[in-house]
Simulated assay, not measured.
Amino acid sequence: MQSIEKLDEIWQDKAIESIINFVKSADGDFDCIAELLNAVSDSDSLQKIVEFLSSTPQGKQAFQKRPLLGNIDLQKLHRLPINSLGYSFANHLLTNNLQPLQAKSVENDYDFFAAHIAETHDIWHIVTGCNTNVLGEIQLEAFYVNQLYASRFWLALIAKNLLKAVIYDIELSTTYMDAIAKGWTMAKQAKPLFGIEWNLLWETPLEDVRNSLNIILPNG
Score class of each variant (00 low, 15 high):
Ser3Thr: 06
Ser3Gly: 03
Glu5His: 15
Lys6Asp: 15
Asp8Lys: 11
Asp8Glu: 07
Asp8Asn: 11
Glu9Thr: 14
Ile10Val: 13
Ile10Ala: 11
Lys14Cys: 11
Lys14Tyr: 11
Ile16Gly: 13
Glu17Thr: 11
Glu17Tyr: 09
Ser18Trp: 04
Ile19Tyr: 00
Ile20Trp: 14
Asn21Trp: 06
Val23Trp: 02
Ser25Asp: 01
Ala26Tyr: 10
Asp27Asn: 14
Asp27Lys: 14
Asp27Arg: 15
Gly28Gln: 02
Asp29Met: 08
Leu36Phe: 04
Leu37Pro: 03
Ser45Val: 09
Gln47His: 12
Lys48Val: 09
Val50Pro: 02
Glu51Lys: 12
Leu53Lys: 13
Pro57Ser: 12
Gln58Asp: 04
Lys60Thr: 09
Gln61Val: 02
Ala62Pro: 00
Phe63Asn: 00
Phe63Leu: 04
Phe63Tyr: 06
Pro67Ile: 07
Leu69Ala: 14
Gly70Ile: 04
Asp73His: 01
Asp73Ala: 03
Leu74Ile: 10
Leu77Phe: 04
Leu77Val: 08
His78Lys: 14
Ser84Gln: 01
Ser84Val: 03
Phe89Lys: 05
Asn91Ser: 11
Asn91Asp: 11
His92Leu: 04
Gln102Ile: 14
Gln102Glu: 12
Ala103His: 06
Ala103Asp: 10
Val106Arg: 06
Asn108Glu: 02
Asn108Ser: 10
Asp109His: 07
Tyr110Leu: 03
Ala114Ser: 15
His116Val: 15
Ala118Ile: 09
Glu119Asp: 14
Asp122Cys: 08
Trp124Arg: 11
His125Asp: 07
His125Asn: 05
Thr128Cys: 02
Gly129Ser: 13
Cys130Met: 04
Asn131Thr: 14
Thr132Gly: 14
Val134Ala: 09
Glu137Trp: 02
Ile138Gln: 08
Gln139Ala: 13
Gln139Arg: 15
Leu140Ile: 13
Tyr144Val: 10
Asn146Ile: 15
Tyr149Phe: 01
Ala150His: 15
Ser151Ile: 04
Trp154Leu: 11
Leu155Cys: 09
Ala156Asn: 01
Ala156Asp: 01
Leu157Glu: 01
Ile158Met: 09
Ile158Tyr: 02
Ile158Asn: 05
Ala159Leu: 03
Leu162Tyr: 06
Leu163His: 04
Lys164Asn: 08
Lys164Tyr: 07
Ile167Met: 04
Tyr168Trp: 11
Asp169Trp: 08
Asp169Leu: 09
Ile170Asp: 07
Glu171Cys: 13
Leu172Met: 14
Leu172Asp: 13
Leu172Phe: 14
Ser173Lys: 11
Thr174Tyr: 10
Thr174Leu: 13
Thr175Phe: 12
Asp178Ser: 07
Ile180Ala: 04
Ala181Pro: 00
Trp184Ala: 12
Met186Ser: 12
Ala187His: 04
Ala190Gly: 00
Pro192Asn: 05
Leu193Trp: 01
Leu193Ile: 03
Leu193Arg: 00
Leu193Ala: 05
Phe194Ala: 03
Gly195Cys: 01
Ile196Val: 06
Trp198Arg: 10
Asn199Glu: 05
Leu200Cys: 12
Leu200Lys: 13
Thr204Ala: 07
Thr204Glu: 08
Pro205Ala: 07
Asp208Leu: 06
Val209Gly: 00
Val209Cys: 01
Asn211Arg: 15
Asn211His: 13
Leu213Gln: 08
Leu213Pro: 00
Ile215Tyr: 01
Asn219Tyr: 08
Asn219Asp: 06
